[in-house]
Amino acid sequence: MSHTLLSVPYTTPMASLSFNTTRIRTPTLQSHKPNSKFSSLAKPIKVSFTFLTKPSRRNQQKLHPIRSSSVSESSVFAPKEVEFDDDDDKEEDDPTAELSYLDPETDPGSILEWELDFCSRPILDIRGKKLWELVVCDSSLSLQYTKYFPNNVINSVTLKDAIVSISDDLGVPLPEKIRFFRSQMQTIITKACKELGIKPIPSKRCLSLLLWLEERYEAVYMRHPGFQKGSKPLLALDNPFPMELPENLFGEKWAFVQLPISAVREEVSSLETRLVFGAGLDLDLLGIEIDDKTLIPGLAVATSRARPLAAWMNGLEVCSIEAELSRASLILSVGISTRYIYATYKKTPVTTNEAEAWEAAKKACGGLHFLAIQEDLDSDDCVGFWLLLDLPPPPV
């Protein structure tokens, strides 16, 4: 699968890469004759997030809300059975209920990776203490699990037992990997996972989980009898100062580029059929609806060592790329809380406008963007392709 990456038109070329200027003695400026106008991205774009977490009606009878264990019944609101009304518009779940669900049409053995959050919620229990909650799902939401905990049992043993309970209750094998996005919980989650032979992966690519938490904030937490309006998250996400890029991630040239969403979809679908590094996203599952002709902004990086670079990048949990205007640089976010200065450019009114336009295009696409690694910026083929979604931190 090959698609020509459409470069953003520049008055001044911005294709020279300054990952580490001491290693590039004579940077080559690579300019492109644009095949499309960036102004097309400035038009309103239909981006609709219709992230559905509730099982379809044909599966609702399979829901089995679980009651809290004896250790927590004395201190958290006792969960009640979920009841479904025949009228979807009147359907309203009890916010104190806990969820244990597996799509009956899904092969339990096919769910190899989970996404997990274990954190306090803006809810007070009957003791006046913040309630904690374990939320687990897979990327397709075929598996969904929630359970409340009092704050005095938060440790790796509790988490390990809960993970085993999910496996036993739903009849699914323990996952091979568990992704999580809170650095403050890394010790507890890592210890629980390793004792069960599960690989813990700190990563903000828990997009199904992040969107589910955003939905649960309004649909569940705000309706809970113990909800505390204005309560700030106990474990806010890290946004550390960006670090110098490791030597193995150096490139040679870069350019802001764009592709129609239809071509992006094809590029993602071909990741499994071609010898290309990268990662995609299930846009349909995430509820992102964009017209097929919409141009998606991206960053193309070219280097003569494109395949080794793509291989190194593939070992990272690439999350997003941000144009940081104040520092005239591009910031690469990977893993759970690692940020690198991926590239820099000479700060001028022209280059600032280009970076602003790229960020505006990304915002107009709901945060959707991509990273492409090529042997040459004029090449039609990508050696590596990552579809990325820049999401705001969850409200909890």
Rank of each mutant, 00 (worst) to 15 (best):
D93S: 10
I373K: 03
S183E: 13
R216E: 07
I201L: 12
A372K: 00
Y101Q: 00
F51M: 05
P104N: 10
I341P: 05
R339N: 12
L213F: 10
G197K: 12
T351R: 06
V164Y: 11
V47R: 06
D93H: 02
D85N: 14
I178E: 00
E113D: 11
S18I: 09
V257A: 02
N59K: 15
T352G: 03
A42V: 01
P395A: 14
R339W: 01
L210Y: 07
G128F: 12
A357M: 12
S140C: 11
I336Y: 00
G335N: 07
E113C: 11
L316K: 01
T96V: 04
K147D: 05
D161W: 01
A219R: 15
Q61K: 10
L29S: 15
D138E: 13
H32W: 10
S36Y: 10
P65K: 05
G298S: 08
P95T: 11
Y345C: 00
T106P: 03
L116I: 04
T352S: 00
A78T: 15
E73L: 13
E375C: 09
L124W: 10
R274W: 10
A328K: 01
A355M: 06
A306W: 02
L295V: 02
H32C: 07
K37D: 06
I154F: 12
L271R: 04
P233I: 13
T351Y: 01
L391K: 02
P65N: 10
W254T: 05
K293I: 10
L271S: 08
A192C: 08
T351M: 02
Q186P: 09
R25G: 03
A300V: 08
H224I: 13
L6N: 08
L281V: 06
T187S: 01
A343I: 00
V334K: 07
D107R: 14
L159M: 11
S142C: 14
G128P: 12
L285T: 00
Q30S: 11
S183H: 12
D291R: 09
M313H: 01
Y345W: 07
I296W: 01
S203A: 07
S74K: 09
L41V: 04
A355N: 02
G197C: 14
L213G: 01
S142F: 08
P150A: 03
E272H: 13
I201F: 09
V301F: 14
R121Y: 11
Y345E: 00
I24E: 14
